[in-house]
Amino acid sequence: MEFNFSQILSTSMILFAIIDILGAIPIVIELRKKAGHIESEKATLVATVLMILFLFAGESLLKIINLDVASFAIAGSMVIFVIALEMVLGLTIFKEGDAPETVSIVPLAFPLIAGAGTMTTLLSLKTEYATQNIIVGIMINMMFVYFVLKNTERLEKLFGKSGLNVLRKAFGIILLAIAIKLFRNNTGL
């Protein structure tokens, strides 16, 4: 088991872009207003466990339903592409339901942090990077997610609406490139 700094950096950046916790600050603030407060520790822990479980069991789950990782990665690249279009163009294609009482788990930990795009990305990353490097990338991101959840109001004031919008669009463009790379790598184009 050998750690590779380049792979850790790549997986961290890809997960950072797909999780987009900075872009989700307005959603987190709205959830906090509806629920009264958010349990940052619980949301971070649940999202981390979900991601690591899917990293290890996701491929087996796919085999049970007779799908290969490349097909899942191609489908995932399309989901990532649509999410990126939402970010860049300011569209809302994926709709979230009403926030229930347990906002720290649903919809914050799942599907906002560890949603379909994140799960798809994890399996796609597994086709290119060593598992231990992906886990380190997950942990780095979850530390950052925890920090953001704990300091959402301060970050909103720091970046302002315009700054958050610029970050969201910049990471949207990065996600577009990631989606295209995943598609090309898994189709042989």
Rank of each mutant, 00 (worst) to 15 (best):
L108P: 07
N165Y: 00
I25Q: 04
V88W: 01
F147P: 06
L9R: 11
F3D: 12
I74Y: 02
A73M: 08
E59C: 01
T102G: 10
L31T: 01
S162W: 09
L158D: 13
L53P: 10
L175D: 04
V148W: 03
L122M: 04
E153K: 12
L164D: 04
A177K: 14
G188W: 12
M143W: 15
V106C: 07
L123S: 01
A170S: 05
E39V: 10
K33H: 13
S104M: 07
L9A: 14
I113Q: 00
G163E: 00
T187I: 03
L55D: 05
A57E: 14
E86S: 01
K150I: 13
L22H: 03
P100Y: 06
S10G: 09
S40F: 06
T118M: 05
I14P: 04
F3L: 14
S71G: 14
M142C: 06
L9M: 13
V88N: 08
I18N: 01
I140R: 06
G117M: 02
Q7W: 06
G137D: 10
M143C: 15
K157Y: 08
K63E: 12
M139V: 13
I93F: 08
L189R: 14
F5Y: 12
V106G: 05
A75L: 05
L55A: 07
L149N: 03
Q132E: 15
I174L: 03
I65A: 08
A109Y: 01
F16C: 02
M142I: 03
L112I: 13
A179H: 02
N185V: 09
R184C: 12
M78K: 04
F16S: 02
E101D: 15
D68L: 08
M51K: 05
G76C: 14
R168D: 03
L182A: 08
L61S: 09
E156A: 03
A116F: 04
I93V: 15
L167T: 04
F81P: 00
T187M: 06
F81H: 05
L85G: 13
L85Y: 10
G23R: 00
L123K: 02
S6L: 14
L61C: 11
I174G: 00
D20L: 02
D20E: 07
S71Y: 12
A109K: 00
M139L: 15
A70E: 14
F144W: 07
S10V: 05
V82K: 09
H37T: 12
V28L: 01
G58E: 02
G160P: 03
A84G: 07
S124P: 10
Y146F: 11
F3G: 09
G160E: 09
N165P: 00
K42H: 01
L175N: 07
M1N: 15
F5K: 14
G36E: 02
P111G: 06
I38W: 01
I65P: 02
E59N: 09
I64V: 14
M78Y: 05
I29Y: 08
I74S: 05
I65E: 11
N151P: 05
I80F: 02
V28I: 04
M87W: 05
N186Q: 13
A130V: 07
E41F: 15
A35T: 08
L31F: 13
L15V: 04
N66T: 15
L89I: 07
T152P: 13
Q7C: 05
I64Y: 12
